[in-house]
Design a protein around this nucleic acid. Structure first.
Length: 581
RNA sequence: CGGGGAGUAGCGCAGUUGGUAGCGCACCGCGUUUGGGACGCGGGGGUCGCGAGUUCGAGUCUCGCCUCUCCGACCA
């Protein structure tokens, strides 16, 4: 490709609304342009990089026996009703009607469709299967952001495994884990593999591949010593024990006018530090009011709570509901049996408590009367806890659950997620095969995803400098750029063209910068778009029969004889192309 | 969904009490220049987000709508 004819619209300034590095650099470098909120055009450079990412993914998937499909983006309502997700997916699903008024949706994932087709598998002899596709997904995200990191239309490699038994699933899961490591490594990433909540997908074990980055939206707790790492939606930690304050024979009510928050109670004379308070939250579980008790200095993880209860939908109660049932507003709520209604809608009010409260005495909590609290509360004696559930959000510095080393919490980007679905979909969609005994068995499934554009953006997030992107060879839009510094000078241009021809003949992806612009423009652009190798052909060194080779990642520069340049760069590029783990 | 902010040339922005719509970069032509975003001269480019209203006159004032963005809620 000749740069003079290439569509590479680089910009001198950052776009005004960009925050994330990947957003700024991909826009400035002429890789992407926004069409609407969360919808982007991939210009030729980005398309080339994504094609290489896809190629890498495809190769590794095929190495573990994956078979690629082409799936429709448009799905009929009926198939999503079978799994129950037409209802549960809510407004994140793009829905539309055809001319016959039939309901359709744009596919946001493909469990249903693959399971539907999987219905044609009839015998255990046909298993295992690994099926995948690399296609566009549509999700009406509530808040797209950070350029291409969180969008409404994107490509995903999603794979589904079908096995007869748990051991088969475990094997498929493990194969995917290894394949993912290869894929990310080849793309120049080294993500953390972390334990994750399986969330709305349902199912068992779930591992996310997370790239640490300030532009990330997920928080991960990790242990630098033993390697434990988990999404904050799932993480647990070892707490340093708290010394109980003095117990009282009976809880003592005291006035706390105008005092509501944990901090205010801690600062109030006669109150108690946050660790000696009971935080009382009120939630609604499928329409039923529930009390959630946390230590005052701890936060609730809604996801951990959701994952540990059998509830379809939960949300915080409104102030009106709290007032009506408990007789007080947030800030004065408490769980004392003596201060709670005996029954709500004919049932005892359910009380869930975090284990950090177990065995605690001398605690302070709200009195269910505005402006009053109790002190000297003994949880075992005074509170009728129904279930103890770990639903606390881990904080940085708390102990690793395995080795007690302080945990670090960092922001990350989720680029891949693998999980064991089990029979969630094969059951609801009626997918089974006959086993050795001729008996029907629900197939056990796994599901495995990688976001293509997000992977590209993650590489930019982790591999750039002030000047621009630094692509690894494997996914660089071009592997080599030849900067012809004085393209008007026929001798110089021809020298560049000879190297260009030699590299093309060697199968190297090369772009010839034959523009008439000044040298500075070419250097800046080459650095901005992040081409791994630059061959500088200028009148100065050409007099000596030399050209300069510059390596983007570390700025390494060397002069070589013009006749050796193509060969030398070509060899280096080829050796870097397929770095496997 | 709640709360802020913003829409003026491809990009970044200015535009006063309402009075002929501007600047930098980019772009086109000619010339000089060519090892770090060069310079001179000459040019092109606008439904001032959309629609109403007030006014002799609206980029500017009023109302409605749309879009984009940030924070929060939500979220494989």
């Amino acid at each position: 490709m000749r740069w003079s004819q290439a569509f590479v619209p680089t910009l001198r300034d950052d776009p005004a609304d960009a925050e994330a590095w990947s957003h700024k650099l991909l826009v400035r470098g002429g890789f992407i342009r926004q069409l609407a909120t969360g919808i982007y055009v991939l210009l030729p450079l980005a398309h080339r990089t994504c094609q290489k990412i896809i190629h890498t993914i495809r190769q590794e998937m095929e190495l573990i026996g994956g078979q690629e499909f082409m799936m429709p983006a448009l799905h009929p309502k009926e198939i999503w009703e079978k799994s129950g997700r037409w209802e549960t997916m809510g407004s994140e699903m793009f829905r539309l009607r055809d001319r016959k008024e039939a309901d359709l949706c744009l596919g946001m994932t493909h469990e249903e469709i693959f399971t539907h087709i999987g219905g044609e598998l009839k015998s255990y002899k046909q298993l295992p299967q690994i099926w995948f596709q690399i296609q566009t997904k549509f999700r009406d995200e509530a808040r797209p952001k950070s350029g291409i990191l969180r969008v409404r239309e994107f490509r995903m490699k999603d794979a589904y495994s079908f096995d007869l038994d748990q051991a088969g699933l475990d094997h498929a899961f493990d194969q995917h884990h290894k394949a993912y490591r290869q894929i990310f490594k080849r793309c120049g990433l080294d993500p953390m593999a972390v334990e994750a909540s399986s969330g709305a997908m349902g199912g068992g074990d779930s591992i996310e591949f997370m790239v640490p980055s300030d532009a990330g939206e997920d928080l991960v707790a990790s242990c630098g010593k033993c390697g434990y790492a988990a999404n904050l939606e799932k993480a647990t930690s070892e707490l340093t024990p708290v010394e109980n304050r003095d117990a009282l024979d009976t809880p003592e009510k005291f006035a706390t006018p105008g005092v509501g928050t944990i901090e205010e109670v801690a600062a109030f004379k006669g109150g108690a530090p946050a660790g000696h308070q009971i935080k009382t939250l009120v939630y609604v579980f499928d329409g039923r009011l529930v009390l959630i008790l946390m230590r005052g200095d701890h936060g609730l993880s809604e996801q951990k709570l959701l994952d540990s209860v059998e509830v379809g939908e939960l949300h915080p109660a409104s102030e009106e509901e709290m007032q009506e049932v408990l007789g007080a507003t947030p800030g004065s709520l408490g769980p004392l049996t003596s201060q709670l209604p005996a029954e709500v809608d004919g049932k005892k009010m359910l009380i869930l408590a975090d284990p950090a409260l177990e065995g605690r005495v001398g605690m302070v909590c709200g009195a269910n009367e505005d402006g009053y609290h109790y002190r000297g509360v003994d949880i075992a004696r005074d509170v009728a806890v129904d279930h103890w559930l770990d639903m606390r959000e881990v904080q940085s510095g708390e102990g690793c659950p395995y080795c007690a080393t302080p945990l670090a919490v960092c922001k990350t980007i989720e680029i891949g997620h693998i999980f064991k679905l089990g029979t969630r979909y094969s059951k609801s969609m009626g997918m089974d095969v006959l086993d050795q005994n001729g008996k029907a068995q629900n197939v056990i499934m796994g599901s495995y995803g990688i976001g293509v554009e997000r992977l590209m953006a993650s590489v930019v997030e982790t591999s750039h400098d002030e000047k621009g992107i630094i692509w690894p060879v494997a996914i660089a839009p071009y592997e080599v750029v030849i900067c012809v510094l004085k393209a008007k000078d026929v001798e110089v241009l021809e020298a560049g063209e000879r190297i260009y021809d030699a590299l093309v003949a060697a199968g190297i992806d090369v772009i010839l910068d034959d523009r008439l612009d000044n040298p500075g423009v070419k250097f800046k652009d080459a650095e901005l778009i992040g081409i791994p190798y630059q061959i500088v052909v200028g009148p100065r060194s050409l007099k000596e029969g030399q050209v300069e080779i510059v390596r983007r990642r570390d700025g390494d520069k060397r002069e070589v004889a013009i006749e050796h340049a193509a060969e030398e760069v070509g060899e280096e590029v080829v050796s870097e192309r397929k770095r496997r783990a």
